[in-house]
Design a protein around this nucleic acid. Structure first.
Length: 121
DNA sequence: GACCTGACGCCCC
DNA sequence: AGGGGCGCCAGGT
């Protein structure tokens, strides 16, 4: 995981990066949320922007990626417009027990989950 | 090939 | 304490 990927092909490393982002995203427990920065920090690859870029292509993934559990560091649903419908993201969050008010998660600190917590167990 | 933009976030004022 | 600037890396124009 800490090992940097040798350069191989650019396409391969891109797909690999996609896979890593999807993988971490799928680790977010139901009813919890994480942030672009936390995922970028955990992967130690690219930047928070690249996480958003990767998630933007999650429709290419065969398996369902719970992209609705990824928000910006303020708890705002900045990616909601990229879902099938503008309200789908908050609908999914609400259905998991996460309160959303005005496109923003209420009590973000209570729901925030950092991938690093996985290793602390 | 330069320039802008983005599902971001830190630093500075 | 709120707002703006800039770095980040890849794609689109």
């Amino acid at each position: 995981m800490a090992n940097r990927k040798p350069e191989k092909s650019k396409d391969q490393s891109r797909d690999h990066y996609f896979y890593r982002v999807y993988d971490v995203t799928c680790l977010i427990p139901k009813g919890r949320v994480s942030t672009y920065g936390a995922i970028a920090d955990f992967l130690a690859l690219g930047s928070a922007r690249m996480v958003g870029w990767a998630l933007n292509h999650c429709h290419s993934a065969e398996e369902h990626v719970p992209a609705h559990r990824v928000v910006n560091r303020l708890g705002e649903l900045s990616g909601r417009l990229h879902f099938a419908t503008p309200t789908l993201m908050e609908e999914r969050l609400e259905s998991e027990g996460v309160k959303v008010k005005d496109h923003k998660i209420v009590n973000m600190d209570d729901y925030f989950w950092h991938p690093r917590q996985l290793e602390e167990y």
